[in-house]
Design a protein around this nucleic acid. Structure first.
Lengths: 348, 348
DNA sequence: CTGAAAGCGCTTACAG
DNA sequence: CTGAAAGCGCTTACAG
C-alpha cells in the first residue's frame, strides 16, 4: 500500500494525495470532493504512510535516541524511561533505546549508531547523577539533553537533574521540625569533605543537610561516609552506632537502601521505628513502601525528568528545526513522601 | 557527507563506492587500488552510511520493535531489556521501545507506530508471564516473538517464558532434600485450585510444587493464596500462621516480595531464619540479596530471555527474510540462587 | 485547484 | 573491472 495506490484509487495525482493526507489540503484549497475521495481511498486500502521515505525526503525521522549507561537494566530509574516514552508518544515521536554500560567508548558507538539512524534529537541518560564527560563534536549539530547528569566543564547541552541540595535541606529541616537534635548521617558526613567523590547526589545532599543543620546550630551527631550505598553499609553503620551504647534519636540516610540496612540493625537490636529512632531518606525506591513501618523519603522525580527531557527536545525541534539546546541546568524538585518512619519528639 | 561525496573524492562512481563500502567489492573483483581509494576517501571525509536511505531502498531497516506493557518502568524485569539491547547491538540492530501500560488499544497503537517505522521484527514483552491476547493480522507478515507471555489460543507467534513448573518442582525438592516435612505455601495453594487466576507463573509454580510434594507423600501443611504478591501479604500470612501457635519449619513463598513480608513477620516474632524457619522463593529480585539472611530463590532468567528473543528474530530475518516465526514455546530454565535462608534439618 | 518533475541517499540489475 | 540509470515512497517547489 503506497501513496501511489491511494492516489490511483482516488483518481488523483500522488501530489494531491500527499497534500490531503498530510493535512495541507485545506490550506491549499483542494476541493472537498477530492479531499473526501482521497481520505476514503486511504481508509479502504488501509494506507499508512511510510515513515522511512518521509524521513529520507524531509531529513527528519520523528525519532529520538535515548542512550543510557544502565538505566533500563539497573531497575532503579525506570521512571525516566516511562516519562520519556509517554512524552514521546504524546508528541508522535519514537524512541530508540541503547545501553552502554557506562564506558565512554561504548557511549560513542551508541551515539554513532543513533546518528546513523538519523535521530532528530538525543537524550543522554545516567543511572546516578554525575558530571558527564566531554561530548563528541557531531553532537553540536542536533538537540541534545543530558538526563540526570551535569554538563562537562566548559559548557555543553541542556541538563536535567533532581534538586538534591534542596532535598538535603528539606530532609534535615524535617527532622529538626520534629524536634530531633541527635541526628546521625548514614552514607556521608559528618563534614562537607566526607562525601563520595563520584556521587554528585551525595555531595549535594550533604551540602543541603549541613546548611540546614548549621543554620539551626545543630551539627550532626555523627557521620558514616561510604563510597557505595547498600543495605549492608546501613546495617554496619547503625550496628556500630549501637555498639557504642547510644540509641540514636534520628537517622538521616543518604538513600533507601542504606535506610533498609539501618532498619535491619535497629530491629535486630529490638528498637522500634519511629518510637525509639526516626529514619528519613532519599530516593523513594519501591522498597520504601514495603518496609515496616513505611519509610519517609524524598523521591527522585524520575518520571517527570524523563518527560521533561523529551518535551525540551521536541520543543527545540518544533521551534526552528534541530538547533542545539542552550546550556541551562534544570533542577527538578524532589517531593517528600511522608510516611511512617519519623516521629515527633516531645520536648524533653 | 553522502556516498556521492566519497565517490567524487575517490574519483569513482557511486555504484563502485557503494560496492566497496558494503563489502561486496572483493566479490565483484574491484581493483585493490580503487578499493583503497574509496576506503580512504570515506575515512578522511568521515562518511557514515545513511541508514534511512538504505532502509528505503532495501525495505529493511535493521530495526526491531520492543513493545511492552510496563517492562521498563515497573523496574522488575529490566534484565529483559538489557538482554535484548545487548543482543541487538551485537547483531547490528537498533531497538525501538514502547510501553502500552497493558491496554489492548494502546498495544495496537504502539504496534502500528512500529509498523509505520518499518521495523524488521517485533518483540511483544510482558511484565508478568501471562497469555497474550489475539494478535492483529498485520503481524502475520513479519517475525514476531512473545517475550514472557504465551501465544493466544489457536496458535500464534513463537514465545519465550521461564520454566515455572520445573522451578516449582525444584523449590519443593530443595526443601524436601533439606529434611523439611512441615512446608507452608505463601501466595497460593494448598490445592491446585488455589492459584491466582491471572498469573500463569502462579499456576505453574503451584503445579510443580504440588507434583513434587505429592510424589514425596508430603502434602503442604497450609496454603495462603493471594491475588497479588506483596510484602504485606507475606507478613499477613505468616502473622496468621504464628498466631495459631505453630512455628513453621519451612516457608515456600511464591515470590521474593512475599518472602520479604514473611521475613518481617518472623523477625518481629523473634524467630531466626533459617534456624527456626527456612524460607525459599522465586524471582531473585535485587531485594533477595539485601535481606538478612540473604534469600535462597529461583531466578527468572530475564536477561537470557531478552537475548533469546532478539536472537530468534535476527535468525529468522537472516534465514530467508522476514518470514513469520513458528509457534514454538521456549521454556527457559530458572536457576537456583542458593543463599542463606534454607537450613538442613537434622532428622528428629 | 491539480499534476508532472525533481530529488532525498542509497543499491542493484544491466551494460559495456 | 567500472559506470549510467532506475527506483525505493514520499514531499515540495513549480507550472498551468
Amino acid at each position: 500500500m503506497t501513496l501511489a495506490d491511494v492516489a490511483h484509487q482516488a483518481g488523483v495525482s500522488s501530489s494531491t494525495a500527499s497534500l490531503v493526507l498530510s493535512g495541507r489540503g485545506r490550506e491549499l484549497r483542494i476541493s472537498t470532493a477530492v479531499h473526501d475521495r482521497v481520505r476514503e481511498a486511504a481508509e479502504t486500502l488501509g494506507y499508512r504512510r511510510n515513515t522511512i521515505s518521509v524521513g529520507l525526503r524531509k531529513g527528519l525521522t520523528n525519532t529520538i535516541g535515548f542512550v543510557s549507561d544502565t538505566v533500563a537494566s539497573s531497575q532503579l530509574a525506570g521512571g525516566m524511561i516511562r516519562g520519556a516514552l509517554d512524552a514521546a508518544r504524546e508528541s508522535g515521536y519514537m524512541l530508540f533505546m541503547s545501553e552502554t554500560g557506562g564506558g565512554p567508548v561504548q557511549e560513542r558507538r551508541a551515539i554513532e549508531a543513533m546518528l546513523d539512524h538519523r535521530v532528530d534529537g538525543l537524550i543522554l541518560a545516567s543511572m546516578f547523577t554525575r558530571q558527564h564527560g566531554a561530548l563528541a563534536v557531531e553532537l553540536e549539530t542536533l538537540p541534545v539533553v543530558l538526563l540526570n547528569s551535569l554538563p562537562p566543564d566548559g559548557g555543553g547541552p541542556a541538563a536535567i537533574v533532581p534538586d538534591e541540595q534542596a532535598a538535603g535541606r528539606a530532609a534535615a529541616e524535617q527532622l529538626l521540625a520534629a524536634g530531633h537534635r541527635d541526628i546521625h548521617l548514614i552514607g556521608a558526613g559528618p563534614t562537607l569533605e566526607d562525601a563520595p567523590a563520584a556521587s554528585e547526589a551525595g555531595r549535594l545532599r550533604l551540602a543541603g543537610i549541613l546548611e540546614a543543620l548549621t543554620e539551626a546550630g545543630v551539627p550532626p551527631a555523627s557521620g558514616y561516609p561510604y563510597r557505595s550505598w547498600n543495605p549492608a553499609h546501613g546495617w554496619e553503620a547503625v550496628h556500630d552506632l549501637l555498639e557504642r551504647g547510644k540509641v540514636p534519636e534520628a537517622l538521616l540516610c543518604f538513600n533507601d537502601r542504606l535506610a533498609f540496612g539501618a532498619y535491619q540493625a535497629l530491629q535486630e537490636a529490638g528498637l522500634r521505628i519511629p518510637e525509639d529512632t526516626s529514619v528519613i531518606s532519599f530516593d523513594d525506591a519501591p522498597l520504601a513502601g514495603w518496609l515496616r513501618p513505611t519509610l519517609t523519603t524524598f523521591a527522585i522525580p524520575h518520571r517527570a525528568m524523563g518527560t521533561m527531557a523529551v518535551e525540551m527536545l521536541v520543543g527545540a525541534l518544533r521551534a526552528e528545526g534541530a538547533h542545539p539546546l542552550g546550556a541551562q541546568v534544570h533542577r527538578v524538585r524532589m517531593p517528600l513522601r511522608e510516611r511512617g518512619s519519623v516521629a515527633v519528639r516531645s520536648p524533653a
